[in-house]
Design a protein around this nucleic acid. Structure first.
Lengths: 188, 188
DNA sequence: GTCTATAGCGGGATAGAC
DNA sequence: GTCTATCCCGCTATAGAC
């Protein structure tokens, strides 16, 4: 048999990116997976544990993604492009938002552990982005004023916000943000 | 007597910016205001109506704010600064996020009317920002590549994302985004 | 406008059989 | 691992008295 735990996390992640932590229930999971609520409780006794597992898995998945990008692309511009493509695929697969954004909106409802794990995840992405930007500047293939860290913060925040804005507006708004991030990095 | 409806909306807005639409209840309102749940239903029969009223009021409030800024500040740079100060005050009054961001995260759960009103609100802010940026460029007090509309989208998305990121990180992350938005507008 | 009381539902979680 | 059955709770919403 395949891994049921992973299947539950897959479905939970999808719902979380479409709705919110408070609004989704074991019943939702039960309906979509086709096993009873009690069976899901067997794998994840509490909602809090499920949520923590979700964030932990997401962090390790994102780590793999970013490491792969770093290995496959040597050019910092292509590395950033690959990451932005990764983010835009979230939008294209339904009008989802990133897991991070969904959970940060309900940050005050998370357990201490989950908050910590979410914080680690964000820090990791920020560090990666900062490094790519610093490398791009050093190689003179990117140009931007200010520090790499600040510019990384801007890009990270903009991508998260853009996914959400795309919901009430059109995906065009999201594409506008991607376009502008790229334009800003071109020297003149 | 003061206006109870407004009081309810005040408290609801505060809770929504701290938690989420799904997680907050008439009981929460009842506890904080000191009247029964049934009394609140008298003013806002359903949660959906309350939510719509909240967005409508927020839109008119924001319209006033932006019009005031436009009248009081003649310099586009100062207009943008005033708006960003307005946003940063959201963060300073507790670790809140903007109403827009909170509701967009649960966009799929909103009624059609509320979705439409939220969309109008976002469009209005985007139009205002675009105009300020275009004016700044025309007066040569701002410099940025690309269109005013795209740069407005970037700033709007970044501010919304930054408020959320500030929760799992520190307010420093938010300040970094503000700083970088300003730096990007300086000609060199 | 506010209250108490309650309906009716769905939530998270558990017990115990298979 | 999965099920049925059930507990207890909190939710939205309504009825009807004051």
């Amino acid at each position: 048999m395949f891994n049921r735990k992973e299947q539950i996390l897959d479905v939970a992640e999808e719902i979380l990116q479409t709705q919110s932590l408070s609004s989704f229930s074991y019943q939702d999971l039960s309906d979509r997976i086709g096993i009873s609520k009690a069976s899901i409780h067997h794998h994840f006794p509490s909602k809090e544990e499920l949520c923590l597992a979700l964030v932990t898995r997401h962090r390790s998945s994102l780590t793999t993604t970013l490491e792969t990008i770093t290995q496959e692309q040597t050019n910092p511009i292509q590395q950033l492009d690959a990451y932005m493509l990764h983010v835009s695929q979230i939008l294209q697969s339904g009008s989802k938002i990133c897991l991070t954004g969904s959970l940060q909106s309900e940050y005050t409802l998370l357990s201490k552990n989950t908050q910590q794990e979410l914080s680690n995840l964000c820090k990791y992405v920020h560090t990666w982005l900062s490094r790519v930007l610093a490398e791009g500047k050093k190689q003179k293939v990117m140009a931007f004023p200010g520090t790499s860290e600040d510019h990384a913060s801007l890009i990270q925040a903009a991508l998260q916000g853009a996914l959400q804005q795309a919901r009430s507006e059109s995906p065009k708004q999201f594409n506008a943000v991607i376009r502008q991030i790229k334009v800003l990095l071109k020297g003149k």
